[in-house]
Design a protein around this nucleic acid. Structure first.
Lengths: 248, 248
DNA sequence: AACCGACTTTGACTGAGATCAAGACAGGCA
DNA sequence: TGCCTGTCTTGATCTCAGTCAAAGTCGGTT
């Protein structure tokens, strides 16, 4: 278990790794003090369920470390991942008690939980928290819509390339500038989780990864460790309109 | 042109048809006065483009009447609708000048536009507007995620049934209670628009509608006018998990 | 009344991705 | 060291929806 454990996480907001990007990003010291009173940390092991659809949940939370997934299921068991929660992402909806998606830990996860009621009160009294939450929600909505385009219109190969590009972008952003397009990263997802995210079967995921490897778009040191020799080349494989859109 | 025209729309917030559901829902009379100062109406004909991806847009807006669509496009022209704007829905993002989706009028549309800067100022000074916007955005995010499940995992038949159920629910909600499951409504979308929304081709849309008709799930008075003899039966065709989820 | 164009339906064929079925690989444990 | 289990890859086959093509419907216009 190499992921940070509860003991390794600072209990102080001031030194929190997601301090500047989470819902509390614009809080003043005195507001942080109030948050400290209603917050507590919880950790979940990879694979563990955080909440089931239909559950009453007495907290909302920020992801501190690790990756969690939101998943929906059809009657006969077909499942679709509808969101990935990365560090600093927010889970739960103020004003709604009941969870609408299954939430599961993809890797080991540490969450900073706020008791629901006090947090809702705090939002009502602290407008800039609501504004920050609005910003984050609008970003999530943009991401969800990008994902709709992927699910509705992209080929299996384009889907894989898009996922790799997204993971690469966020977790190796620094490398890009320094190494002239070469990037390296670990996939936090199993083939099955990738399939659930991309609306494919795990066999198709595996085949397309092999194909991208065969075509030199990526290299595989191990099954989960990926090297992208030329990021531009990867982007071409995503099918995206590269000039029309704006880079986040 | 049977849809309301500019002249038919009240210029008074107090008698506005979307007064109680739009972003301004919780505004006090004095706040409405301020809004009246920065608002103006615009109408668009069916098929007309409201904004292109990449445009700078100097207003945000509420849809007053009609239906508009948000659309994204891949490099080679494949398109996916990523949102439908119905009356009372909000268009645009405070804090962002540049449009991220093509916005087009599906039917004739009237929009209540607010000049961007004054509106942003107003949000900053009037927390409950931001809170209302947050609520609406969270609802849209839920809808987008529902749509991700549809796009990623449903069959063509289930997709059509789901779309019909959604349209039926919102525009004939009253009928349901009174007529024991029988519902009737007009589709505001062409087969092509439905295809763009559902991630299908228009031929497949046409075929599946014919199939649902053949199987007695729906009846067609004309190509756009649909009768659902038994709404429960239609819901069974959507593939959705009927008990796990919560009805909106 | 005949024509036009946009929208829709239907048919025949094709192909990308799903399904079914073996194996391969790697890490943890006895 | 070898076994076991979960994860991943690869192959053979099938199927649903896409593609290409043609014809039907309907409302509006000259």
């Amino acid at each position: 278990m190499l992921t940070p454990h509860l003991d390794d996480i600072s209990m102080e907001c001031e030194s929190c790794p997601i301090r500047h990007r989470a819902v509390c990003a614009r809080c003043e010291p005195n507001e942080l003090e109030r948050l400290e009173e209603i917050k507590y940390y919880r950790s979940f092991e990879a694979g563990q369920t955080v909440a089931w659809t239909g559950d009453r949940l007495e907290f909302v939370a920020s992801v501190v470390t690790g990756v969690a997934a939101l998943t929906q299921t059809l009657e006969d068991g077909r499942t679709q991942m509808v969101g990935l929660l990365l560090p600093s992402d927010f889970m739960g909806r103020p004003g709604r008690e009941v969870v609408r998606y299954d939430v599961t830990a993809v890797t080991d996860v540490v969450m900073c939980c706020f008791r629901r009621r006090p947090f809702e009160d705090m939002i009502a009294r602290t407008p800039h928290i609501a504004q920050r939450l609005l910003e984050m929600t609008l970003d999530e909505l943009d991401a969800a819509r990008e994902w709709m385009l992927l699910l509705g219109r992209k080929t299996a190969r384009e889907k894989i390339a898009s996922l790799l590009a997204i993971v690469a972008r966020r977790d190796a952003a620094v490398q890009l500038a320094t190494t002239g397009g070469r990037m390296e990263f670990d996939l936090p997802l199993t083939r099955e989780a990738m399939a659930d995210y991309l609306g494919l079967t795990l066999e198709t995921v595996s085949r397309q990864i092999s194909a991208l490897k065969r075509d030199g778009v990526i290299e595989l040191a191990s099954k989960r460790h990926i090297t992208v020799p030329d990021f531009e080349r990867l982007l071409e494989e995503t099918g995206d309109d590269t000039d029309g859109g704006i880079l986040a």
